[in-house]
């Protein structure tokens, strides 16, 4: 099997991408492996989301290759192995009538099903995924009635319902309070350690990323830094963001430095 020969889950090989004349990524090579909880960080416009979209086949690179589980992403068809949680935009699903169970059951998709209109949404795997994110009490509520943080948990359940090998999360903690954030990362830690799931998180939350991630990739159109969180210094992070990090991240600055000291 190709997967056995290549243990990487996602591999970007010398990837470049531009939106018209604006370069988003230049010559980026990066690998994500099983059991890795990888944080992708960088300032706005640094190409974080582009990197993710290339990995998911939503964009095609101008040059270079992207492989998912050892296969070129253009030929990849085992999408059941990939869970994706996009950023929640406030009000995006205001009119969407689906309940929490219905939204999560959309994630169980496994190809065209005759009479899919009659498929039940309250299957065991759907209920289990809803329970994993602690939303069981809300499963019959309409998505639009929930807060942004709750909607994010529903989307996480949707991404988890097929028990994927790779989980990609775009700003998963935005709009979640401190205790919700701790719950979220507890779930992700278990998935990564116990199930060996590869998890990629795009985030601006430097403190949380340095605390939770096993590897950190810092982008600024190019791959500026890549390594374990304790390899990164405050100066390197400040250079990346083009501003002193403790100003940029406000109240998490102490957490960030604390994390560095702890690891050293």
């Amino acid at each position: 099997m190709t997967e056995a020969a290549s243990p990487s889950v996602i591999e970007w090989e010398r990837v470049s991408f531009a939106y018209g004349a604006v370069t988003a990524l230049q010559d980026v090579s990066l690998c994500i492996h099983y059991g890795e909880l990888a944080a992708v960080m960088g300032p706005n416009g640094s190409g974080k989301s582009t990197l993710i979209k290339l990995a998911l086949g939503l964009l095609k690179p101008d040059s270079g290759r992207v492989r998912l589980f050892g296969r070129d992403v253009n030929d990849f068809d085992q999408w059941g192995r990939v869970g994706y949680m996009p950023q929640v935009v406030n009000g995006a699903w205001q009119d969407f009538p689906a309940t929490v169970s219905e939204v999560v059951s959309l994630g169980t998709y496994s190809g065209v099903s005759p009479l899919g209109i009659f498929r039940r949404s309250e299957r065991a795997d759907v209920l289990a995924a809803i329970e994993t994110v602690g939303m069981t009490a809300y499963r019959s509520r309409r998505l639009a009635e929930l807060s942004v943080g709750q909607q994010q948990r529903v989307l996480l359940a949707r991404a988890l319902v097929r028990n994927p090998d790779l989980l990609v999360l775009d700003e998963p903690a935005a709009g979640i309070d401190v205790s919700g954030e701790e719950q979220l990362y507890a779930v992700l830690r278990d998935l990564s350690k116990d199930r060996g799931m590869a998890i990629v998180i795009v985030s601006h939350d430097i403190g949380a990323m340095l605390r939770e991630a096993t590897t950190v990739a810092c982008l600024n159109c190019r791959l500026v830094l890549h390594g374990q969180p304790h390899d990164l210094t405050v100066d390197e992070m400040s250079t990346l963001y083009g501003a002193p990090v403790d100003v940029l991240i406000h109240d998490t600055a102490h957490e960030f430095q604390g994390a560095l000291h702890r690891h050293r």
Binding site: Y84, W93, F96, V103, L106, P114, G116, I117, R119, R158
Partner: peptide
């Protein structure tokens, strides 16, 4: 609509999510 209901529902929910679901 009967056959592709789930696909169409996915697309209506989020085009990118639908694509990543296959």
């Amino acid at each position: 609509v009967g056959v592709f209901f789930v696909d169409l529902a996915q697309m209506a929910f989020d085009d990118h999510l639908a694509k990543v679901s296959g």
